Computed example of a mutant assay.
Amino acid sequence: MFELRDLPNYETLAEFAQRYGNQDIDGLQTWLILASATSEMLSAFERNLARDGLSQTQFFVLLLLKRNPGGLSVGTLADGVAVTSQTMTRVLDRMEAAGMCTKLANPGDRRAWIIQLASVGEELLSTALPSHYEWVTRLMSRFDAKERESLQKLMMKLNGPSALSPEPGAG
């Protein structure tokens, strides 16, 4: 989560750039605005999900299970939600206790589980998705079609495999 709410003005960025060797003040300012907006958006997303008693991880697990009615392994769910298998196991234990999913023995590997969506999880999605879609519609209504297309293209540039990785040896 990006925690800086009091963003520095351009003059402060320029002063720091001179003092600490930043060659791209405009880039830093753009990054600060993007990081702040993203953080605010994700916080609002989590607050919206919390109204239905869901965390972001639980919401995405339910969506993955809905898209895969035959079930998914713990590892596949962990990869799909970008958490460790250990974290996913803890999340799934809580979700199973709440009736959102079921664990079935994996016929191909007796040490593993197949996770499937349960009726309570299905009901939660039926409640959460309409309010989520409504929230996204309100958020994205600030952009016209051309702006959305531009935003998508710009964000895809950031989603490239090495775009967000620090340079080797960078601290």
Rank of each mutant, 00 (worst) to 15 (best):
L63F: 13
L64S: 09
E40G: 10
Q56F: 02
A17F: 02
M95N: 12
V81D: 12
L13F: 11
M41F: 15
Q29V: 01
Y20T: 02
A78E: 03
L62Y: 14
I114Y: 00
T102Y: 01
G71P: 01
G27W: 14
V61E: 09
I25K: 11
L92Y: 02
F16S: 07
D24R: 15
D52T: 12
S85G: 06
Q18H: 09
S85Y: 08
R51E: 03
F59N: 00
T84D: 07
R94K: 12
V81M: 10
A50E: 15
L28I: 13
R110M: 11
Q58T: 01
S73H: 04
L28N: 14
L42G: 03
L13M: 12
R94E: 07
D109K: 15
L32F: 15
M88T: 03
R67K: 15
L65V: 00
Y20W: 13
D52R: 14
A98P: 05
D79A: 06
D26F: 02
Q56N: 02
N106F: 03
G108N: 12
L54Y: 08
L34E: 14
G75Y: 05
F45Y: 14
A105S: 13
K66A: 08
Q23T: 09
R19W: 02
V61F: 07
Q29R: 08
T84E: 05
L63E: 15
A97P: 06
A112I: 04
L63G: 14
S43W: 02
N22W: 10
T30C: 02
M41A: 11
T76H: 04
G75Q: 06
S43D: 02
S85D: 12
G80A: 05
R94Y: 05
L72Y: 11
A105H: 12
W113T: 04
T30D: 08
G75F: 01
E40K: 12
V74E: 10
P69S: 00
D93I: 03
V83T: 06
T57K: 11
L65A: 03
D79W: 01
L92W: 04
T38R: 11
S36W: 14
A44S: 13
A78R: 01
N106Y: 03
F60K: 15
A14T: 15
F59I: 00
L34H: 11
R19C: 01
T89M: 06
I114A: 00
T38D: 11
L77N: 04
G80E: 11
E46D: 15
L49E: 08
R90T: 04
L49C: 05
R19M: 01
V61K: 06
E40C: 04
E96V: 11
D26S: 10
R94L: 05
